[in-house]
Write a protein that binds this DNA or RNA. Structure first.
Length: 962
RNA sequence: GCGGCAUUGGCGGAAUUGGUAGACGCGCCAGACUUAGGAUCUGGUUCCUACAAGAGUGAAGGUUCGAGUCCUUUAUGCCGCACCA
């Protein structure tokens, strides 16, 4: 019987669907297991073969866990808010919701064809009001909480208010507005004027992880710096816990390192440098006596406290609050010119052009250790966002300070013995100190410690830890995102009551910013908050009636919806809470999370932050969301090329086969042209399809692999002509439309079936590695399924032989190990070997074939399901379609057959194998040694010598050193 | 600059704890069956070599009875971060 994959796959997909076979309950006596894929953004291009790689792996693991008796939560959903749908809306006027829903439909139909065991009843999409209800709700909680740095957890803002009332007598004297402004500095979700990444082309701000090398990650448009009033999330407050939490996670080291790097903890010290009042300096006798009151301290952060003796100047970031205060009248014009220049530079220019720039402020500070007067400069190599935005410059031991000192001709004092700083700085933290007062002679590490002690004792500073991680900017001047549940009264933000959620995204007809430069929500007719009646009303009413206030016009960024979606799957239809206590207690956390490593510094930080916040509020039971995480590699494209002849007499119509392009007559006379990989099979071009592909190839002629141009080979037999082969070249490139190398899983499924696609994606290589999609091997995998299928032609109830059982048990052991270790690629060879062994034994016994199908089921569920039922059909009582492979338990290992009764020991003399000793498998090491020495071959090879050493390895080998 | 990962036949890749390197698949070669076909089956296929023998996991050292695997140095490629004080 033919392996009719499309019939089998359709039959079982329908059966699973009709029986609701993969619906999961929150109430079960079984142990729980939660397997999650990073949900996709449904792009207009649909899925290509790279997308399902991780989904297939997680599906295999889910099915396996289910077969092992676990209650497995394995959901899928859609990250539905995002820029592409909105950009498309701006261009076409098509509402993003329409486009998004269309794309989601397409994704679902593509995913269904691959045969995943998702519980579709739990599907979520972030743009659904029932879903973003809880995104908005979480935001309100963040607004209503502050981070208590002593307790290291979030606490209600009311507690902070109570503390102010109790401890701060000035609190009561503040106006409502002043109080609110003060609280704003503590809230976890807060409004602040911050320097943001502004992308003029997209008309919105972007978070740091959404910008790469001065360009937006989506679209690649230039990004500039701007100060704007924005919603921010106090992610930085959680930096210590985000860092420390990594130690308890089962993630790869590289991903943990990426996060550690991004969080960027550095131990150091803050120190105060007193700025000499310039007035008293410039003119001491003339005006009234300017006292030391005019002196003020600037705080700097350093990790090299040991180098204070070498500080010869200071540098402030151009955005530093001290700049205005420090600039002297004489320097003001120059400073302002510099500030203007810095401001107009885009981030990209700043990165590309790293020449030394800066300006003297006119002021001097006092080095607290040497009492030397040191000039204060302003330069954009000091970042406002890191540390205090001010540094002490040690040119001898910091390369950036060194370059600056050389440029401005500032003194350089070497502090480490033997360090030559005439050409470059000595940055390494090693060596013995000199020119450093009481630090002289100490090793750098000891000097740092001693200086920290000194700083603490004298009170000129304090030991502190600095983090690179910054607060997340949470406002987007965009339409297609979650609206903020916030309205403004007297310019101050207030959350709308929780029982009024969700605050639904209003309809608009224009997706561009308004004429006055407001975000697109400014176009909404109905977008104002009636405080008394607790409802959204027409925008214009806020102008006239009292009690009606404008609503926030920004929306939330993409990561808002994806930060807690894994919790929602636990309890997706709950209208009372994000997730019920009971559901959360049952599922606990995501046991296995699969997705790309590109989310390392975005989604995976934000999710952990969000989860920790909810944990602080006692709403979730685990403080980390994802216990084990695996990054699947990217699937690159494998492009194919034809080679157009452009040499002498070229007509532009002649294409040379790849194997010939280095021949003298064609070398450097051909031009590679991308050809659609879908009309190439195993690098052989389908000539007819090529001619029909595009008009310019309609009259194409070829030099075929054999070097001739005639399309028909002389045929010694009568009849049909033999088509000749044109070989294409290839290269690994990004999978994209313009390279004509996009492979759609639908096409693979149509030609080979979903089971072949699943198996082949796994066979391609290790899950975590990047690899090109190369269809050349797919036939081999498909052939395996066909051969396996043929074994189920007739199934008998005969007793299996020992050999057959051994083959099966070897397979059970291997597949179990593979799945537990996510080594899916090595399973396919194991199946192939077992299949060929069983076929050689002509095995058609149910006792073997039924477990074989069970083992295959996670990888190729449709064919396995059919095989399984063919086995069960032997017994008519079991032949109903109501039981599925998923009900069958993973086969138990039978140790008796797994291991051979005898063990073979290859015996080596000085590394060369001379004979093989066979003995009972449990023979102890020293017994093996005795048997080897007693062997007749041993005596022959020893030839009277005594062996120096006999090594019996627990595995197999016996090594004799003569 | 800092951090991480990789490097094995013509190709993708196996080798799970340091123990017969090259599993399995592709491709290629030979054969079988066939009114020749992009079907199926069988055998072969790291390199060098007529054989025997030898060499061999980017390179060079080291540890070990034994190294693709561990250590040191180094080369190349990929990824992440980057005036982070």
């Amino acid at each position: 019987m033919e392996y009719n994959f499309s019939e089998i796959e359709q039959k079982w997909q329908k059966a699973w669907n009709d029986a609701n076979a993969y619906a999961v309950s929150n109430e079960s006596d079984k142990p729980h297991y939660y397997v999650l894929d990073m949900f996709p953004y449904p792009s207009g291009a649909g899925l290509h073969v790279g997308h399902p790689l991780g989904y297939i792996a997680s599906d295999i693991y889910s099915r396996y866990k289910r077969q092992c008796g676990f209650n497995v939560l394995h959901p899928m959903g859609f990250d539905a808010y995002g820029l592409p749908a909105e950009q498309y809306a701006i261009q076409t006027g098509q509402h993003p919701e329409v486009t998004t829903n269309k794309n989601i439909e397409r994704y679902i139909s593509q995913l269904r064809k691959i045969g995943f065991c998702y519980d579709w009843s739990r599907a979520v999409k972030t743009c659904d009001p029932q879903f973003y209800h809880w995104t908005q709700w979480a935001f309100i909680q963040m607004f209503n909480h502050y981070y208590d740095n002593v307790a290291q957890k979030a606490k209600p803002i009311s507690e902070l208010v109570a503390r102010f009332e109790r401890e701060d007598p000035t609190w009561a004297t503040l106006s409502e507005r002043e109080q609110q402004e003060r609280l704003m500095q503590y809230r976890i979700a807060y409004l602040a004027d911050t320097k943001v990444n502004w992308c003029p082309e997209l008309g919105t701000v972007l978070a740091n992880d959404e910008v790469s090398e001065g360009l937006s990650v989506r679209g690649g448009y230039p990004v500039e710096q701007r100060v704007m009033r924005q919603w921010c999330l106090r992610v930085s407050a959680y930096a210590p816990r985000l860092l420390e939490g990594l130690d308890r996670l089962d993630w790869t080291d590289s991903l943990k390192d990426t996060q550690r790097n991004w969080i960027g903890r550095s131990e150091g010290a803050e120190m105060q440098f007193l700025v000499k009042s310039r007035k008293s300096k410039v003119e001491s006798g003339k005006s009234k006596v300017e006292s030391a009151n005019d002196d003020f301290p600037i705080t700097i952060f350093t990790t090299r406290a040991d180098t204070v003796f070498g500080v010869t100047f200071m540098v402030l970031a151009p955005e530093s609050e001290y700049v205005g205060r420090l600039t002297t009248d004489e320097q003001r014009a120059e400073v302002e010119q510099y500030l203007a220049w810095v401001k107009h530079r885009t981030e990209r220019e700043r990165i590309a052009d790293r020449k030394v720039t800066g300006v003297f402020s006119g002021s001097y500070a006092i080095n607290p250790l040497t009492n030397a007067e040191i000039p204060i400069y302003i330069s954009d190599y000091v970042l406002a966002g890191y540390g205090t935005g001010a540094i002490m410059a040690v040119p001898a031991h910091d390369s950036r300070d060194y370059a600056f000192a050389k440029h401005f001709n500032l003194p350089i004092i070497p502090l480490i013995e033997g360090a030559d700083v005439s050409e470059q700085s000595f940055d390494a933290k090693e060596g013995k100190m000199m020119n450093s007062g009481f630090l002289n002679g100490l090793d750098v590490k000891d000097a740092i410690a001693k200086m920290k002690e000194y700083i603490t004792n004298t009170g000129i500073g304090r030991v502190t830890i600095n983090y690179r991680l910054r607060d997340a900017i949470f406002s987007r001047q965009r339409y297609w995102g979650e609206p903020f549940p916030i309205y403004y009264k007297d310019g101050m933000p207030y959350p709308i009551p929780e029982d009024c959620l969700p605050l639904e995204l209003p309809a608009v007809t224009e997706f561009k910013p308004t004429a006055t430069g407001e975000p697109p929500l400014g176009h909404a007719q109905v977008w104002a908050w009636d405080e008394k009646n607790k409802k959204v009303v027409e925008s214009r009413k806020s102008q006239v009636e009292s009690g009606v206030y404008p609503l926030e016009l920004c929306t939330m960024p993409g990561f808002a919806g994806s930060s807690a979606y894994y919790l929602r799957y636990m309890d997706p239809h709950n209208n009372e809470a994000l997730v019920s206590r009971q559901a959360n207690d049952y599922w606990q956390q995501v046991d296995l999370y699969l997705g790309g490593s590109e989310h390392a510094t975005g989604h995976l930080i934000y999710s952990r932050f969000w989860n920790k916040f909810l944990f602080d509020l006692g709403l979730v039971c685990k403080d980390e969301p994802f216990r084990k995480l695996i990054n699947q590699g990217m699937i690159q494209g494998r492009s194919n090329f034809v080679y157009r002849y452009i040499g002498e007499g070229a007509t532009g119509n002649l294409y040379v086969s790849y194997n010939l392009i280095n021949n003298p007559e064609y070398k450097d006379k051909v031009q590679p042209i991308h050809v659609d990989v879908n009309i190439v099979h195993n690098d052989v071009l389908d000539i007819t399809a090529f001619r029909n592909w595009m008009p310019e190839f309609k009259n194409a002629t070829f030099v075929f692999a054999d070097g001739t141009s005639s399309e028909v080979e002389d045929n010694p037999y009568l009849g049909a002509a033999m088509p000749k082969q044109y070989i294409c070249g290839w290269a690994v490139e990004k999978m994209s439309k313009s390279m004509f190398n996009v492979v759609n899983p639908d096409d693979v499924i149509a030609n080979y079936g979903a089971d072949t696609l699943r198996l082949y994606e796994m066979f391609l290589g290790p899950l975590e590695m990047s690899k090109p999609w190369d269809t050349n091997g797919i036939d081999g995998v498909h052939r395996f399924l066909k051969k396996a299928w043929n074994m189920y032609e007739t199934v008998t109830d005969e007793q299996p032989t020992k050999e057959e059982l051994k083959s099966l048990h070897k397979l059970i052991k291997k597949i179990t190990w593979d799945i537990e270790n996510f080594s899916f690629n090595t399973s396919i060879p194991a199946f192939m070997i077992a299949q060929s062994e069983l076929a050689a034994l002509k095995c058609n016994k149910r006792a073997i074939l039924e477990p074989f199908a069970v083992l295959l089921a996670p990888y190729a569920p449709h064919i396995a399901e059919e095989m399984y039922h063919r086995c069960r059909a032997l017994n008519s009582q079991l032949s109903t379609l109501n039981s599925f492979v998923i009900d069958a338990q993973w086969p138990e290992l039978n140790e008796a057959y797994l291991v051979e009764d005898t063990q073979k020991y290859p015996v080596q003399f000085n590394g060369k194998v001379r004979f093989t000793l066979e003995c009972p498998k449990d023979t102890p090491k020293d017994e093996v040694e005795k048997l080897v020495l007693a062997h007749e071959d041993t005596a022959r090879y020893l030839a009277g010598n005594t062996p120096k050493k006999v090594i019996v390895v627990p595995g197999r080998i016996v090594n004799i050193v003569i």
